[in-house]
Computed example of a mutant assay.
Amino acid sequence: MTYSQLLQFISKDMTMAHIYQPVMLMELLKNEGKASVEEIAQAILNRDPSQIEYYTQIVKRMVGDVLTNKRKITTKDKGFYSLAGVESLTHGEIDELISLCEQKIIDYEKKRDGAQWSHRRRGRRAVSGSIRYEVLKRASGRCELCGISNEFKNIEVDHITPKSLGGKDDISNYQALCYTCNAQKNNKDDTDFRKLNAMYEDRLHGCLFCDVQTIDRTRIVEENELAFVIRDGFPVTEHHSLFIPKRHVLDYFGLSQPELNAIHQLLHSQKELLLKLDPNIDGFNIGMNCGETAGQSVWHCHVHLIPRRKGDVEYPKGGVRHVIPYKGNYEDLK
């Protein structure tokens, strides 16, 4: 590449979704045009404030707490830690203590064989760009815990149930978290995920929707790991569909976040499919009946997707308000 070509690319043609391209070029330019993957990664890491935030939390909540409050080796004053008595040590003693710390690290790394960083690697392959896009789109570019926008903090794709505890590489088990919430998640969450995973296997013999999964699978038109779709046996309109968690759970309010994600994914997928099957579909009603008073008759959660077409009722305004007679036309109630 000539100077003019590089100048044109960097100043005019480079499109950026992140800082990675200019950082990589800078590293190559500084090292006579050649740099290892690790060197480029280190250059990116040096510009990533989220890593400083992550280890700031480690210092405050873990190592700083242990050395200061439990072991009484250090003291803390505002944002600074101090090692008591260090002023009385000779240079030789300091060098010896540093060497001893280095040896402790070497021995520990040898014992763990790299496993000490497994919480950062998370023992899984990177989430693909297309899946990451879908997760962030579903979250509208915001952390699903604290709500901060990706304009202010980098948003990461996190396993709701960790891989180390049996969590699946499935979009229903992904959530969007800012790097701060992701870093702090394990410190705040004491859920026994082993029991939670077993919960998803719950089935009730004789339940209509539990039995569909084994006895009448031909009714299933789409499924993912935690939910499936069937066409309603008594459709309100053509292609009226039911979205059902595989776990036996009473109603919508008993669903876990991964199950909500799974149903949400299928709703979007089926919406696109039905629009292609029938161009006359002009709208949808989505709803669920929770409790006998609300009309529930099958005691296994299911979400209705009812395609709507112009003219299918005389007066559609009010939509789901029509579940109570004469309450749909709310303008007449004023």
Rank of each mutant, 00 (worst) to 15 (best):
Y54G: 03
C290K: 03
K110R: 08
V249K: 01
D216S: 13
K334H: 10
G291P: 01
K111I: 00
K76D: 08
E259F: 06
S164D: 03
D192I: 11
S149V: 04
I281R: 01
F152V: 09
L267V: 14
K30F: 00
R194M: 13
V320I: 14
R124T: 14
L267F: 09
T74V: 11
L277N: 13
L255Q: 11
N69A: 09
E314H: 04
V37H: 12
M16E: 13
D107T: 02
P22E: 05
C290Y: 00
S256T: 15
A183Q: 04
I155Q: 06
G147Q: 10
G254K: 15
Y3H: 11
V229Y: 05
K246H: 10
Y133D: 14
E222V: 01
R112T: 15
M288W: 02
N46Y: 13
H91W: 02
L242F: 03
R142L: 05
M24T: 03
D170Q: 07
L333V: 07
D107E: 12
N187M: 03
S269M: 13
G328W: 09
R71P: 01
H205M: 04
D77L: 13
D113R: 12
G85A: 12
R142P: 08
I324V: 15
R309M: 10
T90E: 09
D190Q: 12
I324D: 05
D190S: 13
M14I: 04
K195D: 14
Y200S: 07
V127F: 00
H264A: 13
G129V: 06
C181Q: 06
V86M: 12
E39T: 11
L7T: 10
E259T: 10
G287F: 10
Y20W: 02
K12Y: 05
L83D: 03
A115D: 13
R112L: 05
G295C: 03
S241C: 10
L97A: 15
R71D: 08
R122F: 01
V135Y: 10
G166C: 07
M1C: 10
Q57K: 11
L25K: 01
L275Q: 14
Q296D: 05
